[in-house]
């Protein structure tokens, strides 16, 4: 700006801002309701808060939590690796590979997870043994299905293979979101398809892949409780077993809920950390509260 305009710079506007009375009333109503809810939670003796503390660190519950956690992590690992493979197959120019991936996704997304879990647990009824060998020829190693596919293995297979079908669609959406020009530019530089996928396409697809994957991960944390149908025990099942004996249903459910919330919170913060790592384009600094709950304090900042 030149100095001549600076001398004649007009007065900054001082105006009475619009008063949002509706917002004030709405906020007051919500705060009042929240206060009532908190009060009743504290005052109502049926919550048995005195029992929550001791059970929170009960060994049985800790064991259940550990099972939940490893089952979540391992199933998601299978799901992500399987999902990437399926997505690449789905996008392959080979119609057989693409079709096979399509059928897999159709089958595993189209049947209930409970059905799949029970199926894996009862695989022995279908194939009493399986082995490695030459087709129609001799077999070198043989395993008994019932001793190999134990309950934890069946749980892992059921959750992981089902997850792979969902992850495949997420990864496929991510890969498709990357501009065609990126593949062309990499190809023009002499990069092979595989290298282009690894170095150029997937890193850019991550921005689209990570948020729904975080969703899947948090969802998996709780879906693991379905393994109760094949007789496996994790956090929710342990809690059920305990309150089946002592009838303290509510405090034990609170214990489980607290642990689920702790894990979800950790995962949420972890997710937003990864998201920022993969998108240097959106340089935003937000506090943990806004990341977890979407709280905004003060006025929304205008974009520069």
């Amino acid at each position: 700006m030149s100095s001549s305009t600076e001398e004649r710079r007009p007065e900054p506007i001082k105006a009475v801002p619009v008063r949002h009375y509706g917002r004030w009333i709405g906020g007051a109503v919500v705060l009042a309701l929240a206060a009532l809810a908190v009060r009743s939670i504290i005052v109502n003796p049926n919550f048995h808060w005195e029992l929550v503390g001791p059970y929170l660190f009960d060994t049985r519950i800790a064991n259940g939590l550990v099972t939940t956690l490893w089952l979540t992590v391992a199933s998601m690992a299978i799901g992500i690796v399987g999902g990437v493979i399926l997505a690449v197959m789905r996008l392959s120019p080979n119609p057989v590979l693409s079709g096979a991936a399509g059928v897999y996704i159709w089958l595993f997304r189209g049947t209930p997870l409970i059905t799949q879990l029970i199926f894996w647990a009862n695989l022995g009824a279908l194939y009493p043994s399986f082995g490695l060998g030459i087709p129609f020829g001799p077999e070198f190693v043989t395993w008994h299905t019932t001793t190999t596919i134990t309950v934890p293995v069946a749980a892992l297979l059921g959750l992981g293979l089902n997850e792979a079908a969902y992850m495949a669609e997420i990864v496929r959406a991510g890969i498709s979101s990357v501009d065609e020009g990126q593949t062309e530019a990499a190809g023009a530089l002499g990069m092979t398809r595989g290298k282009t996928l690894r170095r150029i396409v997937l890193p850019q697809a991550m921005r689209v892949i990570i948020p729904p994957t975080g969703n899947q991960l948090i969802s998996m944390l709780k879906t693991t409780s379905l393994v109760v149908v094949i007789g496996y025990t994790e956090l929710t099942v342990v809690v059920q077993q305990i309150y089946a004996q002592n009838y303290r249903v509510i405090p034990l459910l609170i214990v489980a809920a607290i642990w689920y919330l702790v894990c979800t919170s950790v995962l949420t913060v972890f997710q937003s950390w990864i998201e920022r790592k993969f998108s240097p384009s959106t340089v935003r600094t937000t506090g943990w509260a806004s990341r977890m709950f979407g709280f905004r304090f003060g006025r929304p900042k205008e974009r520069p």
Partner: peptide, 29 residues
């Protein structure tokens, strides 16, 4: 791919790799 190494191409829409710095773009291939 091997033959394309010897032919450089510049696109209308640049098609730089957005997740890499200028130097990383240049040294990638």
């Amino acid at each position: 791919a091997h033959k394309r190494r010897e032919i450089g191409m510049v696109f209308q829409r640049f098609n730089l790799f957005p997740h890499m710095t200028a130097l990383e773009n240049v040294i990638e291939a």
